[in-house]
Design a protein around this nucleic acid. Structure first.
Lengths: 344, 344
DNA sequence: ATCGATTTCCAAAGCGCTTTGGGCGCCGTC
DNA sequence: GACGGCGCCCAAAGCGCTTTGGAAATCGAT
């Protein structure tokens, strides 16, 4: 059933039917009611492609996910982000199109998305430190919102980010206050912007107390469980092993814990762990009492906000850039305790 | 830059340019070359919406994800599936559109997708035991592939699934062979098809040895870490606690392990765990030696296969239904050992 | 030179929708 | 009674592409 058939069935013109359906005022109420009824009865839905051809609106926003051998973007954190964004799209009647692209073809992919006209806006995922996508997208002229930030950039653009720096500074301070002096940082990939900010927060907190950071205690890598495990195992074998671990994700933290327990060390007594907790639905940090002491910030919420923002941007372009800096809250759980005193 | 402009610039008709670009034979090689060059130079991409209006092809496949208070579909397993499917779409030039829909509006959502014409085919996620979506989709006439199966259905449809029954039967047998008699099943949600098959495999293996299954040892729920932990904690408190746990996912298994360790029990010695391992990139089951003894089957691979299949189905409709049953391999890791002999 | 076959190209008709620019009847007003 | 204004509706022109049904040009064969 298309517009033409529907309007013929009603003995009205396509114009009138279209207007009635889209809520324009220049159609009599009685007629509108009749049209709405007929549309419902015949289960009529306007063809989205035709509609978007005519309006120039795709009613969809794109999520471009770089796939590389380096970094796997489609991860549990991404899944929760998507879930959050999806809620917003659902509410506004937008579609979400994911396209995986090899990272050496990213520019081409963005251009293509714009030229093909299959999306009205874009969410930029996994910003790297020296990311060039902002320039690119601006040149292309497609509205976009960055989930995260690009440290080295000065000009303005829309972003939604967690305050990674302050979160990790606070977490480090918390450990320092507990008497820990050798604190390991199990960070994300250094090339990622968020990882750099976290590193900065960690280093700042140490420096404030006049402590130097020890490179042997800093790791960065893809935040898998195995990575957390391996990094921790190696560090625990040091002559001066760390007494606390600051960890970039719940999943990696589970690896850290596994390593700690394998070493027959007791959590909170021998070794403390603080992790960043993205508040993932499948990896909630315990029920009432958090398992891990953690800096928590819901990535699902970030997804919602990003999506809302990009939709707003699509509907009202030429706004000044907005920023949303989410503060992570430090919740104390069962994984931290005072530094062991029998420390050499 | 659109077709019209490009063809004017070349002094050719839109027809010829279109044909040259789409590889039709009725255009001279010299002309074609000239056209391709100009297209590349001006960075011309055909507008996808216009193209799909004209061809009737959306070049996109939809993934409909029911969002309900009951069951959260956007989980880490889903993420890996999507990643796999995405690879296939990338290879074939298809887009992937995700739409979250409230589960009481699923029918409406599928109809809408079909009527709106924004996708050519659909992947059905999370089939439930008494799922009616097959009928619905068939009535609508949209090609689809189910990831999983619907147990109670007789008529034929395309699906890609892991052999859950045989996987869990083998896992159960493996534990029985190790002398375990009280084996707990930490299953997925009962309403899910895969969970029922796993239960069947488990029960069959027990019955074969003349054992009855004890309802106190069977749980089903959303496969989160916390769920695994809670279920295990409760069962370990039974007067006759299980000596082995059969677990439906790595994430839940991590919760099981946490509970086991909290109870000061030693894995493989006091308590054994076998889990199903979807071979998630972020939760790999150890490096050389698997952490958990597991029935492994890559859900990412399943994603690839599903996507390939649905594309094939879109391009060549009216094929007889195909099925792909993936066998899970049982890999022995560090989480299983003979049943403790000091058993009461 | 003529003719049919081939090659190479084009004009124009859609695909299903929105939207512009009226048209037509009806009202109240001077 | 003519006229401007308003309410309701319509025909038709796009949106950017594909594809049908030729037409013109080229060529070898007669």
């Amino acid at each position: 059933m298309n517009l033409k058939e529907l309007s013929e069935k009603l003995g009205l013109s396509q114009t009138t039917v279209s207007r009635a359906l889209n809520g324009y005022p220049e159609v009599a109420e009685a007629t509108r009611r009749k049209i709405l009824e007929a549309a419902a009865k015949h289960n009529y839905r306007p063809n989205a492609r035709a509609k978007s051809l005519a309006t120039g609106r795709a009613m969809a926003v794109g999520h471009v996910i770089p796939v590389s051998s380096q970094h796997e973007m489609v991860n549990p954190i991404f899944a929760d982000f998507i879930a959050g964004a999806g809620e917003s799209y659902l509410r506004h009647g937008y579609d979400m199109v994911l396209s995986l692209v090899p990272d050496d073809e990213e520019e081409r992919a963005y251009r293509e998305l714009a030229a093909k006209g299959s999306v009205d806006g874009i969410i930029v995922h996994g910003p790297r430190i020296d990311d060039t996508r902002v320039e690119m997208l601006r040149k292309i002229g497609l509205p976009f919102v960055v989930h995260g930030r690009m440290s080295r950039r000065i000009d303005d653009y829309d972003w939604v980010d967690v305050n990674n720096l302050s979160a990790f500074r606070r977490a480090t301070e918390f450990l320092l206050d507990l008497g820990h002096r050798r604190i390991a940082l199990i960070n994300g990939l250094v090339s990622m912007d968020f990882a750099e900010r976290r590193l900065m927060g960690y280093v700042e907190a140490l420096e404030e107390r006049g402590l130097e950071n020890d490179d042997a205690l800093i790791r960065s890598g893809e935040m898998t469980e195995a990575y957390g495990f391996d990094a921790t195992t190696e560090m625990l074998a040091l002559t001066e092993p760390p007494t606390a671990f600051l960890c970039s994700s719940m999943i990696a933290a589970m690896g850290v814990r596994r390593a700690v327990e394998l070493a027959e060390l007791k959590l909170a007594r021998d070794v403390s762990i603080i992790t960043h907790d993205d508040d993932l639905s499948y990896l909630s940090n315990g029920r009432e009492v958090p398992i891990f002491t953690a800096t928590r910030s819901s990535v699902r919420q970030a997804g919602r906000i990003c999506a809302e923002r990009v939709i707003d941007l699509v509907q009202n372009p030429d706004q000044p850039a907005q920023h949303c800096l989410l503060e992570a809250e430090l919740t104390v759980g069962q994984s931290t305790g005072p530094a062991p005193t029998n420390q050499t």
